[in-house]
């Protein structure tokens, strides 16, 4: 019993220490840095000013932020529209097909996502698989320029993040009682009306959490934009990385980081509120 208690304490203290050292303290440092100013010698001159946040409101910086949100929103939409039908089929599939399909969803995780992103260049290149096929079939006369476009970034992000949309949707659809659908049809609703009035509202927690899991990482996954989008910084993640590694303007990068974190926090609160309201309604 004595050693048991010691082990428990050790694990808890260890975890807390780890979290404090590698998550809390760095975040505090970034937070403090966002109020400082850049200096050639020390990277950061400590201080307290909102100067960096004001600079973020510059037209050029705002544009990057907005386009990043737009891109991520588009990725979320693509993922939602692709994942919902798949998750619905998955939830209705019989064993063993359901397990096979779930394995298909999980298989990409076995390969590093950076490697998979590079693999996409092999498909999107001017001499890539897609262009070879299109040229071979005579559908296009000249290879399409797909690489280094926003479309390529959207495709890459959607591909990488799709499982994070499928899994919560699958859980929500699998939990959906078929009786609700039958009751709706029984009361005169067509399949389409049943979908909008019963299935979508009752799977909303899955939709919202899937969207969160795609939208938030979608803002920050700078390497996808780097590999498929070229030199142009399309994501807020690229911008932050550039401030730290290229421009060496740490305070501005820190301010952008804090803004991004705050944005995520606000969305998490909204999600928590909406899901707790839905749960209160569905506790039958």
């Amino acid at each position: 019993m004595r050693s048991d208690g010691f082990f428990k304490t050790a694990v808890i203290v260890g975890t807390i220490a780890w979290m404090a050292l590698f998550a809390f303290v760095p975040n505090v440092l970034v937070f403090l840095a966002s109020f400082g100013s850049a200096s050639p010698e020390n990277f950061i001159e400590p201080g307290f000013s909102l100067h960096n946040y004001a600079r973020l409101m510059d037209r050029s910086h705002l544009e990057i932020m907005l386009s990043s949100l737009e891109l991520s929103g588009l990725v979320t939409l693509v993922c939602l529209l692709t994942a919902y039908p798949f998750a619905a089929i998955l939830a209705r599939a019989r064993q063993p097909w359901r397990s096979y399909m779930l394995v298909l969803v999980v298989i990409p995780f076995w390969t590093n996502s950076l490697v998979r992103t590079y693999a996409m260049t092999a498909m999107l290149n001017t001499s890539g698989i897609i262009n070879s096929v299109l040229l071979g079939l005579g559908i296009v006369k000249e290879p399409l320029a797909m690489m280094y476009t926003p479309g390529a970034v959207v495709l890459g992000l959607a591909y990488t993040l799709l499982p994070f949309m499928i899994l919560p949707l699958y859980t929500a659809l699998e939990r959906l009682d078929r009786r609700y659908v039958e009751a709706s049809r029984d009361l005169g609703a067509t399949p389409i009306k049943t979908f909008w009035r019963v299935v979508v509202p009752l799977t909303m927690p899955g939709i919202v959490s899937g969207c969160m899991l795609v939208f938030l990482p979608g803002i920050g996954m700078f390497y996808v934009s780097d590999v498929l989008g070229g030199a142009k910084a399309m994501l807020l993640g690229n911008f932050i990385r550039d401030q730290f590694l290229t421009t060496r303007d740490w305070p501005l990068g820190a301010a952008a980081s804090v803004t991004l974190t705050a944005l995520m926090g606000v969305m998490l609160v909204l999600y928590w509120k909406s899901s707790s309201r839905l749960n209160a309604g569905s506790q039958a």
Partner: peptide, 20 residues
């Protein structure tokens, strides 16, 4: 005929009231 086009209604065993 699908259920929505039949002039009958069902009271389900578990009621199946819409929780939302």
């Amino acid at each position: 005929l699908p259920p929505e086009r039949r002039n009958v209604n069902t009271v389900f065993q578990s009621y199946a009231l819409f929780p939302h």
